[in-house]
Amino acid sequence: MNRSVIEADLCKGCRVCVNSCPNHCLSIGSEINRLGYQYARSTPEKCTACGICFYVCPEPGAITVYKGEAPDVK
């Protein structure tokens, strides 16, 4: 299944990806990461691996987009 994998400790919780995802696969969770932000989380169900979240995300390594088999995310 396609998925955008978000590296929790690299996310600054800006919500730009959440707001940009055409299929509403992303949301901000309630947990707080090492940087002190409530970070974004993804759900794989409707993800088309379009890459929009990757491009709008201002952090170089926060988002990796998988097409097909994505690793399990806790």
């Binding site: 890459g51 990757f54 390594g61 990796t64 987009v65 097409k67």
Partner: peptide
């Protein structure tokens, strides 16, 4: 398969 990831030029 990874389609988008942190670019190697970083």
């Amino acid at each position: 398969m990874i389609v988008k990831e942190k670019p190697k030029a970083f």
